[in-house]
């Protein structure tokens, strides 16, 4: 297991190198001069030249790439935003907690809801419940996130007033919330911060802010998980050992949840891993509709400003996360099915 993990880590390196090269080439070949965009319409030729030199944009592209890699490898430095002039790692540290909390909330909803829906559909195959479950999951996959987010806001926030419209905390809590530490990264985990400081009203306020974006973000993975669970369950339910279990007189619940479900989870876990990875990459649309200050919005804003270091650093970070999540999923297989040997 250990050597497997080590090898997987090693194999991540060329993949990351590939990602970094691809992103680097893509943003450098796209139209738009970052120095010009930085200086705007009031740019003078001298200042544009100076900024290009400062940013290293006057060097040949391969030199820029090598310098970039050198900085990451030798100093672990992802660079500095050309616009805010702050470290990418600092900015990432400020944004990532919001994305992580939202992703976790959405994934919990998606996993619980998706598996339940899938199991129900499988055990009621061909009946109304199956039809309803699969229809709603199809709707979930095909619904435009942007539209869904706005509809949820309109009905549950604006119309019924059950939840706040957008943001992470209401102004009154925003202001009074105590700091946990001086480390922005930790402070920005609002669940941690509100619980650790015992500020339960703020915690409740935060949960209320989390509901609508989490539901919006959960629809697609929930639908995917439900469909995979259903088909995987259907396969398992036809296996001999299930018939044996039923013949032994085990309760239906025990057969379904203990015997069938665990064995049909392998493809489900793969999908969960993938979906989790996707969501961590920043749910741009959800973050935009709900004014959620996460990583996805940060990178998209950087693209429009041609803030190269932010795009490069952000994408590299997300790619790394994605690979790590996948590694974790592969390791989970051995737990779910001891017959699987990694190595």
């Amino acid at each position: 297991m250990f050597s497997y993990t080590l090898r997987r880590f090693a194999s991540m390196l060329p993949a990351l190198l590939g990602v970094s090269l691809l992103v680097f080439l893509m943003i450098h070949l796209a139209p738009g001069d970052p120095a010009r965009l930085l200086l705007g319409k009031r740019a003078t030729p001298e200042l544009v030249t100076k900024i290009r030199t400062d940013l290293g944009l006057d060097k040949p592209i391969y030199v820029q790439y090598v310098l970039y890699l050198k900085r990451i490898v030798l100093h672990g430095d992802l660079g500095t935003s050309t616009h805010s002039r702050r470290k990418i790692t600092t900015e990432l540290g400020e944004r990532f907690p919001a994305t992580l909390e939202l992703t976790f909330a959405a994934m919990i909803l998606a996993i619980v809801g998706g598996i339940l829906l899938g199991v129900l559909a499988a055990t009621h195959r061909g009946r109304a419940l199956d039809f309803l479950g699969m229809f709603s999951s199809l709707a979930g996959v095909s619904m435009p996130i942007f539209w869904l987010g706005l509809v949820l806001i309109l009905i549950f926030a604006y119309g019924l007033g059950l939840f706040p419209v957008s943001g992470r905390l209401s102004p009154q809590y925003d202001i009074s919330l105590e700091k946990l530490t001086d480390i922005a990264f930790l402070n920005n985990f609002y669940t941690l911060r509100t619980v650790a400081t015992g500020n339960w009203t703020a915690f409740w306020d935060y949960l209320r802010h989390l509901v609508l974006p989490a539901v919006t973000l959960a629809t697609v993975p929930l639908a995917v998980i439900a469909r995979i669970t259903r088909s995987s369950m259907l396969e398992v339910l036809h296996q001999d050992y299930i018939r044996t279990a039923q013949a032994k007189g085990l309760s239906r619940r025990k057969v379904v949840f203990k015997h069938a479900l665990k064995n049909s989870l392998i493809p489900v876990v793969t999908v969960i891993g993938l979906e989790f990875g996707y969501l961590l990459g920043g749910a741009v649309l959800t973050e935009t509709v709900f004014a959620w200050p996460g990583v996805g919005r940060w990178i998209v804003e950087a693209v429009s400003k041609r803030d190269f270091p932010v795009i490069q650093g952000g994408v590299l970070f997300i790619a790394t996360l994605f690979m790590l999540v996948n590694l974790l999923v592969d390791m989970l297989y051995t737990y779910l099915d001891p017959r699987i040997r990694l190595g």
Binding site: E94, P293, R297
Partner: peptide, 9 residues
């Protein structure tokens, strides 16, 4: 207070 991408107080 300045919470990047979110709010300035």
């Amino acid at each position: 207070q300045w919470s990047r991408g979110d709010r300035i107080v």
